[in-house]
Structures are given as structure tokens and as C-alpha cells.
Computed example of a mutant assay.
Amino acid sequence: MTAGETTFDVLNGLGMLLICFVTLYPIWYVLVNAFNEGQDAMRGGIYWWPRVFSIESFEAVFKNSGIMTAMGVTVAKTLIGTVVHVLFTAMVAYALSRRELIGRKFYMYVGTITMFFSGGLIPTFLLIRDLHMLDSFLVYIIPAMFSFFDLIIFLAFFRDIPDALDEAARIDGAGDLSIFVKIVLPVSLPVLATIALFHGVYQWNDFFTGIIYINNVDLQPIQTYLFRVVAQSSSSQMIASMPGGIGKSVTSQSVKLATMVVTTLPIVVAYPFLQKYFVKGLMIGAVKG
């Protein structure tokens, strides 16, 4: 290895460390301040470790019924929405992967157009209203059932499935539904996990749907709840509505930070276990084999 290559490796490593630090430090800063006593944190100067360790802010979060209800809505819509989205998109993709489907190219053209152009927010709101999905849990599920981008990923995988599997199943008397359920889905676990990860992260992080279509506070997800806490500075009112037993050191800022940690932690913990599917999903269809 030449001196130039060594210098490049060193600079490259330092650059990557700098990028990692810039990316991760804001998360660490929020975590450290969330675990610090609220009144003490208001003095500032906390950068690396809690100065006065305290979990009272997290106690305030978990004792608030509004936050726990919002968390339940988020978990429910993430699980149900992800399962429905994956199965429905996979069914449409399997149908479009069949060469004998009449009008297949037309459907693909129409679907491609929707990736670049949409009706806009106002027509979408009017449609949701006319479908009677305002203030309904279904607004989280039905509009997000299908994604043409995810369909393309499914198509790339389904086209690589050997035709011999399909032919053997039809010889045994299997129909399209049986082939899809008993053959296509079991061999498609990598792409199913990839799309589930994509959509699960979207469902967990989505706050806009709750802001536009939900007025009932019992149906708002945790991300919408957090948005309203931060944007409307309502955390002081939230503290005032807490049951007894919350320490005086809890502040509105400490509750905001603790809420951020609680809402972000589940998806951050789950992501490393699904990362291999995420990487594999990006390569689906890139190499024939």
C-alpha cells in the first residue's frame, strides 16, 4: 500500500467518523437531556452525560393517559396497516406479473403516472370526507393500502421466480389464488420483509394523516400527539393534567424530550434486526440469477 493510499484511507475514515458523529450526536443530546432532571437541564451545559440523573420525565410520560392512548393507536395502525399494505400490494403485483393479464401494460402506464402526479391535498381531503373516513381509524389503513413504488419492487422479485413452479402447481390443479398463497408468498419472504419495513417505518412516523383527517384526540397517533406538544407548546397543560406523584422537577421541555425518546425508541430498536432485509430489498431485481 502506497503512502497516497494510506493517506486516503485515513482521511476517508476520519470523514466517516465525522459524518457518524454529526448524525448520531443530536440523538444522544436528546437522550442525555431526557434523563436529566428537568429543572437542572434548564441551566444548560449538558452535552455528554446527565448532570443530575432522573427518570421523572419518563414517569410523567407513562402516567399521561393521552400519550398511552396515542401510543396504542400508533402500534395498532402500524401492525394492521403494514399487514394489509403488504398483502394487498403483493396481490396486485402478482396479477401484473402475469403475462396473460389483459391490459397489463396500460395498468403499468397509469400506475407510473401516479408516482409523479397526484390529485393534491384538497381533492384528497374531499375524497376522504365523502368516503366517511374523517375521524375514523380506517383513514390510516385504506388510503395507504397500495403503493406503486412498492409494487415495482414486488414485480422485480416475482419475475425472478421460475416459471416451473407455476407450471407444476397448475398441473396439480392449483388456481391463481392457491399459487399465490402457497407458493409465491412463502418464497417471497425477503421482499415481504423489505416492504413491511418500508411501510412499517412510514406508518410509525406518519403524523400528517392525524393532523389533517383526525379531530378525535382518542384516535390520534403518538407522532401527531408529539407534533402538537412541540408545535402548540401544550406540554405545560399536559403536566398540569398529570395524576399525583409527579415530581416538581419535571418541566415542559423535559417532557417533550422524554416523549421524543419514547416515540422513537421502538423503531430504532427494531431497525437493526430488519436491516439485512432492507439492504437485500434494495438489491432485488438488480442482478438476475
Rank of each mutant, 00 (worst) to 15 (best):
M1N: 12
T2F: 08
A3R: 12
E5C: 07
E5M: 10
D9M: 12
N12L: 13
N12I: 04
G13I: 06
G13S: 14
L17W: 01
L18N: 01
I19P: 00
I19T: 05
V22E: 02
V22N: 03
T23N: 00
W28Y: 08
Y29S: 13
V30H: 04
L31R: 02
V32Y: 00
F35C: 03
N36Y: 05
E37W: 03
E37L: 09
A41T: 03
A41Q: 08
R43V: 02
G44H: 13
G45I: 09
I46L: 12
W48R: 10
W49I: 14
P50L: 06
V52N: 11
E56L: 01
F62N: 07
F62I: 11
K63I: 04
K63H: 04
N64H: 11
S65C: 01
I67Y: 10
A70E: 00
T78A: 14
G81L: 02
V84N: 11
H85R: 12
V86G: 02
F88E: 13
Y94H: 14
A95C: 15
A95F: 02
R98T: 11
E100N: 15
R104A: 11
F106W: 05
Y109G: 13
G111V: 05
G111E: 06
T112K: 05
G119Y: 07
G120A: 13
I122D: 10
I128L: 12
R129L: 06
D130C: 08
H132R: 08
V139T: 00
Y140M: 12
P143N: 07
A144V: 01
A144G: 14
D150C: 15
I152R: 04
A156F: 03
D160M: 08
L165H: 14
D166K: 11
A168I: 10
R170E: 10
R170A: 12
I171T: 15
D172Q: 11
A174N: 09
A174V: 12
D176A: 15
D176R: 15
L177A: 15
I183Q: 00
I183E: 00
S188D: 07
A193T: 05
F198E: 05
H199W: 02
H199Y: 06
G200H: 02
V201H: 02
W204V: 05
F208H: 09
F208D: 10
F208S: 13
T209G: 10
G210H: 03
I211K: 12
N215T: 12
D218Y: 12
L219G: 14
P221K: 10
P221Q: 11
I222T: 02
Q223D: 03
Y225A: 15
L226P: 01
F227W: 06
V229E: 06
V230K: 09
S233K: 14
S234N: 08
S235T: 14
S235Q: 14
M238F: 08
I239H: 00
P243F: 03
G244F: 01
G244M: 06
G245W: 00
G247N: 08
G247E: 01
K248R: 09
S249P: 03
V250E: 02
T251N: 06
S252F: 01
S254P: 00
L257Y: 00
M260W: 01
V268H: 04
A270W: 03
P272K: 10
L274H: 10
K276E: 00
Y277N: 08
F278N: 02
V279L: 04
K280D: 06
L282Q: 04
M283A: 11
I284V: 15
V287T: 11
